[in-house]
């Protein structure tokens, strides 16, 4: 195919992508460096919008709190989701007959909109009529029948665990695929040399799964930093109760569309830029470390 025809084939995609993705992404950075009065752009103000994020109320309290929640969301998801996902994938490995069916069942909640998942669990966990607390009371665990979402101490963990529940099918599939690529000869050899199943897994299989674990970690990181719809369904745009389910994207949304402050565009764009740098920096840093590690194991 010659160059001109090729470019003709690419043009529609490029135009669409350029206008609706690249152009807004690039301009969103420039927004952060200008003063704003409502929707009218004022002069260049340098980093003023960024300093506002660290010196002005409500950011001085909301920003660190939201960031902390995002970090907890990431760490909690990593620990719980990776542990369960890896264990399940390992147990499913070599169950050729049932693997596909089970993987499919685990992936079902992934399909459902986070908004639906949020409202569904809000209803299931409702203190008055919720099936979860009814069940706990029936089996004699009244003391466990807590107002899960009404209590600031438990609400965040409900959001995290529900998210893990929804996404578990993803690490199961990825780790399943990665395990399928580990030659059986390696584990057989370890077994012949007297290693137990557990030892063979820890010393032989696990190191070979590092690239897959890395991929899942990077994707989980991006996912955790962008969390929006699920916490919105649980706690609205203010992260109820008492800001305990507030996240950076919610703070961004509130600042941009709900705050009513005249320079909302400037400060919210500064926040978006910081969030973008956080996501990109984290993802790139982790990928670089992984590449080096991969080189290390493949020699």
């Amino acid at each position: 195919m010659n160059r001109r025809t090729g470019l003709l084939f690419v043009t529609p995609a490029l135009a669409l992508f350029g206008v609706f993705v690249l152009y807004p992404m690039v301009t969103s950075f420039s927004y952060a460096f200008y003063g704003w009065a409502g929707t009218a752009r004022q002069g260049f103000v340098g980093l003023e919008n960024f300093t506002a994020l660290f010196t002005r109320a409500p950011f001085t309290t909301d920003l660190p709190r939201a960031l902390w929640h995002n970090v907890l969301f990431f760490v909690g998801t990593m620990l719980v989701q990776n542990t369960i996902g890896l264990t399940v994938a390992f147990l499913l490995h070599r169950r050729a007959r049932t693997r596909r069916a089970l993987q499919t069942l685990y992936a079902m909640p992934y399909l459902v909109s986070p908004i639906v998942i949020g409202y569904l669990w809000t209803l299931l966990l409702s203190p008055t009529f919720g099936p979860v607390n009814t069940l706990l009371t029936k089996v004699g665990l009244e003391s466990w029948a807590l107002p899960w979402l009404g209590d600031p101490d438990t609400a965040l963990w409900v959001v995290i665990l529900v998210s893990v529940w929804q996404w578990i099918g993803f690490p199961v599939l990825l780790y399943g695929a990665a395990l399928g690529g580990v030659p059986d000869e390696l584990t057989e050899a370890a077994r012949v040399d007297g290693a137990s199943n557990g030892q063979a897994f820890r010393r032989v299989v696990l190191p070979l799964l590092v690239p897959a674990i890395g991929t899942v970690s990077v994707l989980t990181f991006i996912f955790a930093m962008e969390a929006f719809a699920l916490p919105y369904a649980f706690g609205g745009s203010t992260g109820n109760p008492a800001g305990s389910t507030d996240f950076l994207s919610l703070l961004f949304y509130r600042t941009a569309f709900d705050s009513g402050s005249t320079d909302a565009i400037g400060t919210s764009s500064a926040l978006a830029t910081l969030l973008f740098l956080l996501i990109f920096g984290g993802a790139f840093g982790a990928t670089a470390v992984l590449r080096r590690h991969e080189k290390g194991i493949t020699g």
């Binding site: 160059r3 470019l7 152009y23 969103s28 927004y31 969030l275 990109f280 993802a283």
Partner: peptide, 27 residues
């Protein structure tokens, strides 16, 4: 130029497009 365009498109895989909601709104 096609290699270059391909990397441009693939860079979009990592872009958190939701963060560009304000410019999209004004566009």
């Amino acid at each position: 130029i096609f290699r270059w365009l391909e990397s441009l498109f693939l860079s979009g895989l990592m872009l958190p497009i939701h963060l560009a909601i304000l410019p999209i709104f004004y566009l």
